[in-house]
Amino acid sequence: MASNSNRKARQPQAGNGSEIESEIDREVDAPIGSLLRFPGGDPSDRLQQTDPARRGDVDEWGRSEHMRRLIRQLTTPMYQRWFRVEWEGLEKIPRHGGALLIANHGGAIPSDAPMIMHGIEQELGRPVYGLADNWFRTVPLVGTMWSRGGGVPAHPDNAHRILHEHGDLALVFPEGAKGPGKLVTERYRLRRFGRGGFVETAMRAGVPVIPIASVGAEESMPILYKSSAGARLLRLPYLPLTANHLVFGPVLGTVMYLPSKFRFRVLDPVHFDVEPGLARYPRGRVMDEAEAIRQNLQENLFDMLAKRRSIWFG
């Protein structure tokens, strides 16, 4: 529906390959930016062109295009068939320039992040850098895979570099681990938005914040019970027992999602009328903006939930 119309709407532009290619050609001189733009050309080839001693295709952020391709192959069927993702207001995401995307977070192992990233990649043809808690980096294997798949540690410097210097899209979840770590009874109730750091980052980079309300992820892996002692023991942010464990068993249930229907609604971009590049912004202003964005996102979530007739069919 909405996604179809969007897909149709952008067909002519996607077909206009010369524009995109010329943009890529222009970017080749940029040492980092060129390597990160993955449509067109094999980045590993490009890496070896600039540096003949290189053997792999891992770029300076740790992203590997081979791993991206593998992940894309795994996510495409999930995106199209399992979650049947639909977008609303996708045209509000700019085709050029940086923007900070924020969204609500849900599900024990949040499925909204890869779906939003994959969706924007597919529908708009531009990469999204998912900024995630650096806790990921401490987990063997997971941290490496996450980094190879395009994940970037959520550090203000990293966000600034992506948004301001590269002019790319970054995706953050301001709730942090408190979002996915909530019980099924509290679903779609937004947690505190940290200390509003995302607003300050966007102000400094001079980019808009674009909130995305996401419905469906909470039900794809709902948490029934949390063990705080177990979490402490395993040094996890939370140790959940999910409905998936009951349906699919303890092993498969940890990695298998329930087929809830996903809907993403892109809200109006929030522009801040401040001078970019300052070291500090008034704390009160930052908190007010963050709270206003949170309120708006919460209202839209309630609206979407009110219109949703079925968890599984939307």
């Binding site: 300076e60 952020w61 650096n134 401490t138 970037v152 540690p153 550090h155 203000p156 410097d157 570099r161």
Partner: peptide, 9 residues
Amino acid sequence: HPADPTWFK
């Protein structure tokens, strides 16, 4: 450290 930025200035 895991909390490091990807690039140190």
